[in-house]
């Protein structure tokens, strides 16, 4: 899956807090008890990159001073799978391994049948066997790939614009219209569900509703809402482009641009904001240091030296 222009991987790490808040709301809505403990587990999951077992994540929690019994942890992790928050990798004789789902970043796995070690693969399928051998050092003996999708019958029975309720899990969509009103409209708009928004269905709760990802947040919507939100498959053409947005490093000496977005998180981002690197401000690239890094830019009428590493997080429109 190609990454969306305008969103670097920094954002994905950046939104842990946001995900935790999203799910706190969802858990409360769905009437789960012990929300705090579930959020603790969720945060531990988000902090982990790569695969982990129930025992490993309990270990993480214990070290963080929040011990948790394994029954509750397993149950909660399974509910996370259900919510589309984590993937479960199940092998015959190994404990279940989990991994948190990065929105918009899909990948596949190769699993050793003896030790259960897992490597990630990120490549078009038909080039797999040879490439997997080269990149992972495995010798591929047999394979089984399961793909999910929509069959021609289902697709043909669906118009170009359809209700969100008839979308399949994993489908990427954009919102065309919303027949909602009052508080409900306000609430959903507040959470980012609006005309033109990019939406991905993460899981469907039978008849009750679904959890969908809107931009970078996840929200729960009930069946009634889903019926009244009309969507179209694929990304919105102009949104896909965000034409001409480049990182500041790609601007070139002697050219200026308007800041569209500052990616990243924490102190770095804060520092940039303090120094006047804010959305809408105009930057001009003055020069590059003799050794190729940092670069000097003008912003808000003064001169700033900034490393390329940080400059690449600043997206500008030339």
């Amino acid at each position: 899956m190609p990454s969306v222009p305008g969103f670097s991987s920094f954002d994905l790490v950046d939104i842990h807090d946001k995900i935790a808040r999203d799910y706190e709301r969802i858990f409360e809505q769905d009437g789960y008890g012990r929300t705090d403990a579930r959020i603790d587990l969720l945060r531990a999951v988000l902090r982990r990159e790569g695969h982990f077992t129930v025992e490993e994540i309990i270990g993480d929690l214990r070290r963080a001073g929040r011990p948790m019994e394994s029954g509750f942890a397993s149950e909660t992790l399974e509910s996370f799978v259900h919510y589309g928050l984590v993937w479960a990798i199940r092998t015959d004789d190994q404990p279940v391994r989990y991994e948190h789902v990065h929105l918009l970043r899909h990948h596949d796995h190769v699993i050793c049948v003896r030790c259960g070690r897992i490597s990630e693969i990120d490549l078009p399928m038909r080039q797999w066997p040879r490439h997997v051998e080269q990149t992972t050092g495995f010798r591929i003996l047999q394979g089984q790939t399961q793909l999910r999708g929509l069959c021609p019958q289902c697709l043909s029975g669906r118009p170009a614009v359809f209700a969100l309720s008839s979308a399949g899990v994993g489908e990427e969509l954009h919102v065309v219209g919303m027949e909602l009103e009052g508080e409900e409209l306000k609430r959903l708009t507040g959470m980012g569900l609006r005309k033109g928004a990019r939406v991905e269905v993460l899981c469907v709760n039978s008849d009750a509703g679904a959890i969908i990802a809107v931009d970078q947040s996840r929200i729960a919507v009930n069946r009634g809402v889903m019926e009244r939100v009309s969507v179209r498959a694929g990304r919105l053409p102009e949104a896909a482009g965000r034409r001409g947005v480049v990182p500041l490093t790609g601007l070139g000496v002697g050219r200026s641009g308007r800041i569209v977005r500052v990616c990243g998180h924490g102190p770095t981002r804060h520092r940039l904001l303090e120094m006047g690197i804010t959305r809408g401000a105009t930057v001009f690239v003055e020069r590059v240091a003799p050794l190729g890094d940092p670069i000097e830019v003008t912003v808000k009428g003064y001169y700033l030296a900034i490393r390329k590493e940080e400059a690449s997080r600043i997206l500008v429109e030339p």
Binding site: T268, R271, Y303, L304, A305, I306, R307, E309
Partner: peptide
């Protein structure tokens, strides 16, 4: 390593 953002004064 931390961000390097520094003013170049007149």
């Amino acid at each position: 390593p931390t961000p390097f953002v520094m003013e170049l004064p007149t």
